[in-house]
């Protein structure tokens, strides 16, 4: 059985009186692709950020290859370098070119020489088909191109898992395709991923397991076909109906 790469156990995240994530346990195995979906504001992003230790969980534990990250004294910077993260709103470094964005972590975290970092960064940009745009600044790129750089930035660090938080939801429909194509290629290569996405055709194609998330907890989980044929819970069924109608319209 494949090893679990990233896992949370009984994870809670509470902001003041708002419970964003309640008692969630979830693990992603080597080579596995899990898709998380559910209504906006249901706590998906918060859960993703807690798993990447970008937000501190209120209660519960996060493990990276069995090593507990929620204990005091853990070098979180080192752990974060091993977990790739792609943001919904992309968040490239505005003052750096596409190449500079990808090189920053290689230079300052992995301590590569300039030449080595540049070689690896160019390779990552080639993987997302952005090599020709290496010298452009984020503001000179389209949303889809920016997000591809965002993926390259995470990819170049050679992470053990990549978490993608709605990587296409801030993009125009015509730009979504180019990002989805890249994700499909990553999936083919066996990249371990946790993807938050409502691109249902894509989800169905790549997911090993889909997880319906609502009000801070896992409502229902199963293989993709399960959701397309007979979701058990009412809430999941209604959500699926709405999504499928929407997809048909698009």
């Amino acid at each position: 059985m494949a090893e679990i790469v990233l896992e949370c156990r009984n994870l809670w995240k509470i902001y003041g009186k708002v419970v964003a994530v309640r008692d969630v346990s979830l693990g992603i195995k080597e080579g596995e692709i899990k898709v998380l979906f559910g209504p906006s504001g249901s706590g998906k992003s918060t859960l993703a950020r807690c798993l990447a230790m970008l937000t501190k969980p209120t209660k519960g534990d996060v493990f990276l290859r069995g090593e507990c990250l929620t204990r005091p004294g853990v070098d979180l910077n080192k752990a974060r370098a091993r977990i790739g993260f792609v943001f919904q709103h992309i968040w490239l470094f505005n003052h750096l070119t596409a190449l500079g964005n990808v090189m920053l972590g290689l230079r300052r975290v992995l301590k590569m020489s300039k030449e080595e970092a540049e070689k690896r960064a160019r390779r990552a940009l080639r993987e997302v088909r952005m090599e020709e745009w290496a010298d452009h600044y984020p503001a000179q790129l389209s949303g889809g191109q920016q997000q591809r750089v965002g993926i390259a930035r995470a990819l170049a660090m050679d992470p053990e898992i990549i978490i993608l938080d709605e990587p296409t939801s801030s993009l125009d429909p015509e730009l979504t395709g180019e990002v989805i194509d890249i994700l499909r290629e990553l999936a083919k290569k066996g990249t371990t991923m946790l993807i938050i996405s409502h691109e249902m055709l894509f989800n169905r194609e790549v997911a090993d397991e889909m997880i319906f998330f609502d009000e801070g907890r896992i409502v229902e989980r199963g293989p993709p076909d399960h959701f397309f044929t007979m979701p058990k819970t009412d809430r999941a069924r209604r959500f699926m109906e709405r999504l499928i109608k929407q997809t048909a319209r698009d």
Partner: peptide, 25 residues
């Protein structure tokens, strides 16, 4: 905030994020 979180996600320390990402902007 967003630039800081993006920097942290790569494994940069807070101090590195200030030096290489926040201050230059």
């Amino acid at each position: 905030e967003d630039q800081m979180m993006a920097a942290l996600s790569l494994g940069l320390s807070k101090f590195q994020a200030i030096i290489y990402v926040i201050l230059p902007q």
